[in-house]
Design a protein around this nucleic acid. Structure first.
Lengths: 122, 122
DNA sequence: CTAGCGACTTGGAGTAACTCTAGGTCAAGT
DNA sequence: ACTTGACCTAGAGTTACTCCAAGTCGCTAG
């Protein structure tokens, strides 16, 4: 697959994908004779994982650690798997706090909207 | 109130508050004889509004428009109120899309965690 | 009376995570 | 032969803070 295709399938822009490659978050991506990136199906899967982690607000620093663990030679040892599990778990926790906050703000926003609506007699 | 106090009560850091003042998002803040900012209760209220809008991801550009409308001489005309209502409404819509996305990603994250957990026999 | 403390002040540099631009390559179509 | 279109790179720009250095002011303790 070429970069545009994985971009569409992962939801990340081509620029972001190139940026992730430069930042050591992707495994080595093959190139064709023109120098274009040739993404394997696994590469796309990996980009989708990264996109989800980022979409939930995991900082790139943590994503990079996760990537480093997944791409290390010992990636399938239980030590490394445990490391990744811990990363995900701690992220899940901040995420659920974040969501509670977000919901409170959303309620407040809807309240504001309803006061404006009634003030304007709509 | 001094900056530390409004910082604590609004949840914004002093630096962020100063940054918002510089970016024309606050009304004129009084100064005492030392040159320190003296926040009125209304100023704090306004900071709390801004904090909530930002916490829900409204871009500063939109927050600035909202602030400009609220601080203009015509702020209480129905045209200006309508403008603010429209801003809040369109933000509420992007917010609810964003939340759906976030929930899908959170589900995925929990799924990932459970596969790691069972792989490690925990 | 002066020395130090602590909470502020400023301008400006630094950071995170993209995002965009300029300038370039290369194979394929007209 | 030339243009098109999808890619390439390095590097500058953007957003929304966040941190830092250097300075000021009023207060207290010696």
């Amino acid at each position: 697959m070429r970069i545009d295709e994985v971009s569409e399938k992962s939801g990340l822009t081509p620029d972001t994908i190139r940026f992730y490659e430069k930042s050591d978050m992707l495994p080595a991506i093959a190139r064709d004779q023109r120098g274009w990136r040739q993404f394997a199906p696994d590469d796309l899967e990996w980009l989708i994982v990264l996109a989800r982690l980022r979409a939930t607000g995991m900082p790139l620093k943590a994503v990079r650690e996760f990537a480093a663990s997944a791409q290390s030679a010992e990636s399938e040892t239980s030590t490394e798997q445990r490391k990744r599990l811990d990363l995900l778990r701690s992220h899940a926790e901040t995420l659920s706090q974040r969501r509670a906050e977000l919901e409170a703000c959303e309620d407040y926003l809807n309240f504001k909207i309803s006061t404006y609506t009634s003030k304007l007699g709509l």
